[in-house]
Amino acid sequence: MKEIVVISGKGGTGKTSITASLAYLGGKDLVLADCDVDAADMHLLMQPEKIKSEDFYSGLLAKIDPELCTNCGICANVCRFNAIPVINNQHIIKPLDCEGCGYCEKVCPEKAIIMEEQNVGFWQISNTRINNKLVHARLGIGAENSGKLVAKVKNEAKQLAKTDNKKYVLIDGSPGVGCSVVSSLSGANYVLLVTEPTVSGIHDLRRVYTLVKKFSIKAGCIINKYDLNYAKTQEIIDYLQEENIEHIASLPYDEIFIKAIHSGKTIVEYDKEYFYEKLKECWNRILELIEN
């Protein structure tokens, strides 16, 4: 079983639209995982039917028992996150500032602080309308540990691929270069980078690929909206050569991306000709590359 991760650094490059199309083309050979748990959109194209759903607990939050608390202030003194202010003569925990380190709990002489596990969201396995299964999740508002939820989604997808005897896990990664991207990348066999010929697209591609290199994963790149700026497209092609990243394809700036989303379809379903052929070539090429 091989793991393919699609990332872009920058948001809005067309990553989810392209991943959904590849998922359509791969059909029942794969399990699809939406690891963009902060702003998950894949389900909007897949009409998921829930098979299984579970709450996700991760990270701790301090809680003060006012009955036991003598307001000695030791907890507030050790807290590096300024999460324990005094309100109406009582020390309280500010949930959004508490990082769950538990230092306060360990130093409280009255044992008035307990650490509680946080429900930070849920994850779910669904049947999609395109003959595969989707593992997706929703992170609670302002939750920490998106990296851990990403790891959970990925591991569930891998497990599912094993039990169902699927050849591939296809992962829609998250933007940025932080913990959730690191979680998306770890253990992957192939990275598909989706970029666009804009100053920010190139900038973010370079940063995220610097991260990919640390994992020594083979990478390929799709340049989306290539006709928006030919000079920048050339700049990307030069960069890809320099870094030995295969340039898989260039796709034009086209309203079809938006129209397909509005109709709840993937691009390859919406446009059976040009985009279907183009993305079919991409998918076949990616499979060739990971099998060798």
Partner: peptide, 28 residues
Amino acid sequence: SPPGTSCPVIEATKNADFVFLVTEPTPF
């Protein structure tokens, strides 16, 4: 601000007096 709804966004917006949420007219 950074994108998303998790801790970096909270840190970036929690002191603001007003937040402009930028969106686009698509289901996403």
